[in-house]
C-alpha cells in the first residue's frame, strides 16, 4: 500500500510534466492540424535555458530560493516562447496551405536542426545540477518504508494546477482565447470576421512553448540531469498523451499526460523498467484501436 502510494505520487509528478508538454501538441494540432514534431525540442531548449539561468543566478549571487525560482521560471518561459515563435515563423508559416506531409517534414527537419544546434553549442555531455530544493514531508511513517512527498513534487503539482487553471481561463474567457477557438473551428471564417489568423497561430505556438518551458524547468529541477536528446522521447510520450486524451482537447491532454506518467511509473515499479516505453506505446495502440478519438475527443464525422 505504501509502495503504491509512493508510486502514485511519482507518477502524478511525471504526468504533470508530460501534460504540460502535451498541451503544446494538442493546441497546435487543433488549430492547424499538424504534428509539431519540434515541440519536444522546444521543451529541451526550455530545460537548457532554465539550467543556464540557474547557473547565471548562482554566479550573480542571487540565492534566495523563491526569487531565484521565479526569475528562472520567467526567463525560461520568455526565451523559450521566442524560440517557439521563431520556429513557427521560419518553418511553418511559409508552408501554410501546403500538403500536410510537407509541414510534417519541415517539423522533423527543425527537430533535427534544434537538437544538433544545442549539441554543438552546449556540448553532447549530460549536464547535471545539484538538487536545488531538497527535503519534503513524510506522509506515512514506517520503519522499513516511508511514503515521501518532496517539496519539489508539491511545487510541480501546484504550479501545474495553477498554470492549467490560468490557461483554461485564458482560452475560455479572453478575446485571445476566443480567437484561438474560432480559428480552431474554421480558419477561413475566422479570417472573414476579422481575426488575424497568423497572429493567433503565432500566439498558440508562443503559449505552447512557454508551457513546455515550464515542463523543461521542472525536469531540470526534478531529475537534475539533462542533455540535448531529452526532447525526443519526452516529445513522443507527450504526443502519445495528447492522442490518448483526445487530440485537440485541452483537458484531454492533461488527463493523457497524467495517465502516461502513471502507466510509466507503475510499469517500472511493478514490472520491468526496460520495457516502460513499450508499455506506454502499447496502451496508445490499444486506445486507438478501440477508441480512435482518444478518451475525451469528440468523434469526427467523415464528410464526403
Amino acid at each position: 500500500m505504501e509502495y503504491f502510494l509512493q508510486q502514485l505520487i511519482n507518477g502524478l509528478t511525471l504526468g504533470a510534466i508530460y501534460g504540460l508538454i502535451a498541451i503544446g501538441y494538442t493546441m497546435v494540432y487543433g488549430i492547424i492540424g499538424m504534428i509539431n514534431f519540434a515541440h519536444g525540442e522546444v521543451y529541451m531548449i526550455g530545460a537548457f535555458i532554465s539550467l543556464i539561468t540557474f547557473l547565471l543566478l548562482g554566479a550573480l549571487g542571487i540565492t534566495w530560493l523563491p526569487l531565484a525560482l521565479l526569475i528562472v521560471l520567467i526567463s525560461a518561459m520568455f526565451f523559450t516562447a521566442v524560440y517557439g515563435w521563431t520556429l513557427e515563423r521560419i518553418a511553418y508559416r511559409p508552408l501554410r496551405g501546403s500538403p500536410r506531409l510537407t509541414a510534417l517534414i519541415s517539423a522533423i527537419g527543425m527537430s533535427i536542426f534544434l537538437q544538433n544546434y544545442v549539441q554543438i553549442l552546449q556540448g553532447a555531455r549530460v549536464k547535471s545540477l545539484p538538487p536545488v530544493l531538497p527535503g519534503g514531508f513524510t506522509l506515512m511513517g514506517h520503519e522499513s518504508f516511508a511514503v515521501q512527498i518532496s517539496y519539489l513534487q508539491i511545487g510541480i503539482m501546484l504550479l501545474t494546477v495553477t498554470l492549467m487553471a490560468a490557461f483554461s481561463l485564458l482560452i475560455s474567457r479572453t478575446p485571445m482565447g476566443r480567437a484561438q477557438r474560432a480559428c480552431e473551428q474554421d480558419m477561413k471564417m475566422a479570417a472573414l470576421v476579422g481575426i488575424d489568423v497568423d497572429r493567433t497561430i503565432s500566439t498558440t505556438f508562443v503559449i505552447g512553448a512557454a508551457l513546455a518551458a515550464v515542463a523543461g524547468m521542472m525536469v531540470t529541477l526534478y531529475y537534475g540531469v539533462i542533455d540535448f536528446y531529452i526532447g525526443f522521447l519526452a516529445g513522443i510520450k507527450a504526443f502519445t498523451a495528447a492522442v490518448l486524451g483526445g487530440i485537440g482537447s485541452l483537458p484531454g491532454a492533461m488527463l493523457g499526460g497524467v495517465l502516461i506518467g502513471l502507466i510509466e511509473v507503475f510499469w517500472s515499479a511493478y514490472f520491468t523498467i526496460e520495457y516502460k516505453d513499450v508499455a506506454a506505446f502499447s496502451i496508445l495502440v490499444l486506445v486507438l484501436i478501440f477508441r480512435p478519438t482518444g478518451l475525451l475527443g469528440r468523434p469526427e464525422a467523415e464528410k464526403v
Binding site: 518553418a91 508552408l95 510537407t102 519541415s106 527537419g109 533535427i112 544538433n116 544546434y117 549539441q119 554543438i120
Partner: peptide
C-alpha cells in the same frame, strides 16, 4: 558536427522552397 545540423536545415529549406 555540423552534418546533421545542415541536414535538418536543408530539410526545412527545401520544403519551404518547394513545398511539393
Amino acid at each position: 558536427d555540423f552534418r546533421m545540423l545542415a541536414f535538418g536545415g536543408l530539410m526545412v529549406l527545401i520544403m519551404i522552397w518547394r513545398p511539393r
